[in-house]
């Protein structure tokens, strides 16, 4: 496989991993939402992410298959047949769903990130990635609207909702740093105009998130700590549990259809 195709396949897989793992986490709210309307709304968001994962994995498979290797792959091979160390999602996506405040804070941090990320990915010289970004960006604008409004509602709500929101922010903040760090592989693709240069919008992201938190009477944490490793395949203990549940049926009954 030529080196750049190899890079693109990895990059598409990483973006697929971010989407699939977060989508799976959000889907855990289905039938557990605080009330019917929110349950359905969260289910929609989960499906948006899982749909996005399918597009990224299908593209990774397409790039792989175009190289004419011995084995042909499909989106399912990427989702179901890779183990923990092969998953390269940012860690924030795999953390347990937590309480509703935790879910909302994670969505806010990720949604604002994706608003910037997908705008930049639209400009990719890779036509398929740019097309996926065009579709996903519309969904993300809506996700972002929801998470912003929930943040305002809960942050500036009761003393309990405020406390739960602030705890979630304090717990999650250290996982945001790696979202703006890129290894050699992604830097090669950035140089080629294919991948998004995350560092370029870190300040804009921080400004957007800070403004929303401030309006919600919440505080941006000052304590500096960071957990990283997702893009290298080093995960928290949570990912293994997700994969066990998510991959079980596919692996125990290979080729099953219904």
């Amino acid at each position: 496989m030529n080196p750049q195709s190899q890079d693109i396949m990895q990059y598409a897989t990483r973006l697929g991993d971010d989407s699939l793992i977060l989508g799976h986490r959000i889907s855990e709210w289905v039938s557990n939402g605080p009330f019917l309307e929110e349950d359905i709304a969260l289910g929609n968001v989960a499906l948006d992410y899982i749909g996005r994962a399918r597009m990224y994995y299908s593209y990774a498979a397409e790039v792989h298959n175009a190289q004419g290797g011995e084995t042909s792959k499909s989106e399912d091979d990427f989702a179901y047949m890779r183990d923990e160390r092969e998953y390269q999602n940012h860690l924030i996506n795999e953390l347990p769903r937590g309480d509703f405040a935790y879910t909302i804070v994670r969505q806010l941090l990720v949604d604002v990130y994706n608003v910037h990320y997908l705008e930049a990915l639209k400009l990719s010289t890779d036509k398929t990635l740019a097309a996926i970004a065009h579709k996903a960006a519309k969904e993300t604008v809506y996700h972002n609207r929801r998470s912003k409004e929930w943040t305002l509602r809960l942050g500036d709500g009761t003393s309990e909702s405020y406390e739960r929101m602030q705890n979630a922010i304090d717990d999650l903040w250290g996982y945001t740093h790696e979202m703006f760090e890129q290894d050699d592989l992604e830097q090669r693709l950035v140089a080629a105009g294919i991948a998004v240069d995350c560092a370029s919008f870190k300040q804009a992201w921080l400004k957007d998130v800070s403004a929303i938190l401030e309006q919600a009477t919440l505080t941006v944490p000052e304590v500096e700590w960071a957990v990283r490793g997702g893009r290298e395949g080093y995960h928290t203990e949570s990912l293994g549990h997700i994969l066990t549940e998510m991959q079980f049926v596919h692996r125990s009954m290979p080729g099953a259809k219904w």
């Binding site: 019917l36 309307e37 929110e38 359905i40 709304a41 929609n44 609207r145 929801r146 409004e149 509602r153």
Partner: peptide, 15 residues
């Protein structure tokens, strides 16, 4: 059910 008009509009979209 929703808390206010804005939220009702969003849930209407989702539901």
């Amino acid at each position: 059910h929703a808390e206010d008009q804005e939220q009702a509009l969003e849930y209407a979209r989702d539901v």
